[in-house]
Amino acid sequence: MSTPNTTVPLTTLTPKDFSSDQDVRWCPGCGDYAILNQVRRVLAALGSRREKTVFVSGIGCSSRFPYYMNTYGFHSIHGRAPAIASGVKIANPELDVWIVTGDGDGLSIGGNHLLHILRRNVNVNILLFNNRIYGLTKGQYSPTSEEGKKTKSSPMGAIDIPITPLSIALAAEASFVARAIDVDKNLADVLQAAAQHRGTSFVEIYQDCNIFNHFAFQYATDKATKDEHVIYLEHGKPLVFGKNRDKGIRLDGSHKPEVVQLGKGVTEDDLIFHDQNDENLAFLLSRLSYPQFPEPMGVFYKAEDDCYEDLLDGQVRQAVAAKGSPDLDAFLRSGETYTVGA
């Protein structure tokens, strides 16, 4: 369960209570600091218990995250955090498990595991820090780097087509898909919604790597431009954006999204209304990208569905009910046996 309810909180924990004794060693100015602070705050706000909380990570800058949380933590191997977290949840569904991964760890070496934890709907929260670069290995292009990006490993420009994490999550049957920005206030809301969702919550967080890919998301964070390049999703509300909230997104005659100016005969009623339970809309929204469109932030999609670990527990209970739970002697003698007399 994402909010432990078997332990009565004796004291209210503060964000500081979730800080471990380890010095945080990310580069000064890294977007990870902001995310770390927000996660600590959200856990405190949700009344999480340290002993029931587990952070699992792979390899990469983001994957150092567990060391900085005073909870249980597992800094594992590259790309495999979803698999390890799945094992933790199967063994103890009561634990509140968070996976911290990055665009390399989660989408490149660990892409397969990401697909499968999403389709199984294991009740964990996945935070994918997307900085569109390999930071820990000192600046090679990643699966989300723009085409043509020049890096140490692509001096003539990357020729790989980047992938869109949210589109992939939706295609993998994710039951909760959201996006936020490291320095944005709405990160806390998104994290809280993710924590409260039962099932795999997938959150992509735009994160600035100020050493190897600084300003990759400046369009979405710079006060002067962000209102034109970001659109905050609200369930049931029309897709309106812009400094003066005078622009919106609607479907054109061939059902393709287009940016429109409100007024001059275009009203909010003409716009797309966000429905976080509509997976087709969620996919459409996941395809909107800068600079052609403002990029949506918030909860794209949310669906109620059974969790893998609960279904597995259910099968055990069902089998015990159907067959009984024999003792060891009866078990070893079940099936075809024969007796040899003295």
Partner: peptide, 29 residues
């Protein structure tokens, strides 16, 4: 053998299988 309390996890690949098992061990089973 679910009735004996056994859980089986058919992972997506060999690596996921051993990693899930490591998660199980970490969580105490």
């Amino acid at each position: 053998m679910r009735h004996m309390g056994v859980k089986t996890f058919q992972a997506e690949d060999e690596i996921a299988a051993v990693c899930a098992a490591i998660g199980v061990a970490f969580a105490g089973q």
